[in-house]
């Protein structure tokens, strides 16, 4: 059995650790809130952009716009995987990678070739370790991110998509529900389907928009619908990526909050057990000493 001194040291160590974990939990909680409120702030733009897109979708130019039209024979698929740079976030990183793996298996069976764009170091490491074809990685994103921090990610896939290297783009992100619930999801980013938005990333935003007015409004286009689409579609793609990233960020922080809270609780329980053991050790040491003294006194008598 451990000595009293050893137990004391261990208790102190566990106490220190629990201080760190509870501090991390508090930080993560506020960061999750901040990321979530940033998502809310994008709603005004998202709603409007979606209305405009929806209005343009009925024009003839939309049917042939390269970022809107489906391609026959999808061969090359890109998946953008959003994960965290750091661990200590419970199952957050492994959940999204597991989903990506399942999804990829299905695609591979259908004969598609898949390339990956990893956002976040953890996802990058896990994908590379599994021997996946990672074409670009983005790590050390600022927190909170600005829209301009995410644009390069969109650029990579949009360029490859337009040049024909990629026929379809998916995005794997984690949908934030609340501090204890989140869902890893995969949704289609390109080609964009302005009329069917149930499969769009962060579609719950668009579902609530009332489109009855906007689609009937008879707009003058200046310049033509084609150029308008050229302006609005890439921005919409950027926006979806930005929103998905913010959702994932909120999820990561909330997952870390839960993990750190559990760690703090565990540390408390451990401290209790160790304190009991320390008291026992101390008592038995005292008992032994008394016995020694009594034994010594008896021997002298």
């Amino acid at each position: 059995m451990a000595t009293e001194r050893e137990l004391k040291t261990r208790i102190r160590t566990v106490q220190n650790t629990s201080q760190i974990t509870s501090a991390l939990a508090a930080i993560s909680a506020s960061k999750a809130n901040r990321a979530q409120s940033r998502v809310q702030a994008t709603r005004a733009y998202a709603g409007k952009a979606f209305e405009i897109l929806n209005n343009l979708a009925s024009s003839a130019a939309a049917a042939v716009h390269p970022m809107l039209a489906d391609r026959n024979g999808v061969e090359n698929v890109a998946v953008i995987v959003i994960s965290g740079d750091r661990g200590l976030a419970g199952p957050y990183n492994s959940e999204i990678i597991r989903l990506v793996e399942q999804f990829s298996e299905g695609l591979t069976k259908m004969g598609s070739k898949i390339s990956y764009v990893a956002v976040g170091r953890k996802g990058q490491d896990l994908l590379i370790r599994r021997g996946m074809n990672v074409i670009a990685t983005f790590t050390n994103m600022p927190d909170p991110p600005q829209q301009t921090d995410i644009t390069p990610v969109a650029q990579v896939v949009v360029d490859d998509y337009l040049s024909g290297k990629i026929d379809q783009v998916f995005i794997a992100y984690t949908d934030f529900v609340n501090m204890v619930t989140r869902f890893p999801r995969i949704k289609q980013l390109l080609p964009l389907k302005p009329t069917d938005f149930s499969d769009m990333p962060v579609s719950e935003f668009f579902r609530s928009i009332d489109l009855t007015d906007s689609t009937t409004a008879d707009y003058t286009y200046e310049p033509a619908a084609e150029q308008l689409l050229d302006a609005i579609v890439p921005r919409f793609v950027d926006l979806q990526l930005y929103q998905s990233y913010l959702e994932s960020l909120a999820s990561e922080h909330s997952a870390r909050y839960v993990a750190m809270n559990n760690a703090t609780d565990n540390a408390k329980a451990l401290i209790e057990d160790l304190t009991l053991a320390r008291n026992k050790a101390r008592q038995s040491a005292i008992t032994a000493e008394i016995l020694d003294i009594v034994g010594g006194a008896e021997a002298l008598a």
């Binding site: 405009i52 209005n55 343009l56 409004a217 008879d218 707009y219 003058t220 286009y221 200046e222 310049p223 150029q227 308008l228 302006a231």
Partner: peptide, 19 residues
Amino acid sequence: PGIEGRMGILPNHSPLLTV
């Protein structure tokens, strides 16, 4: 600052989408 020149918008303007 429209892409094809500046434009002034007053109340009751007809519906317009512009870059």
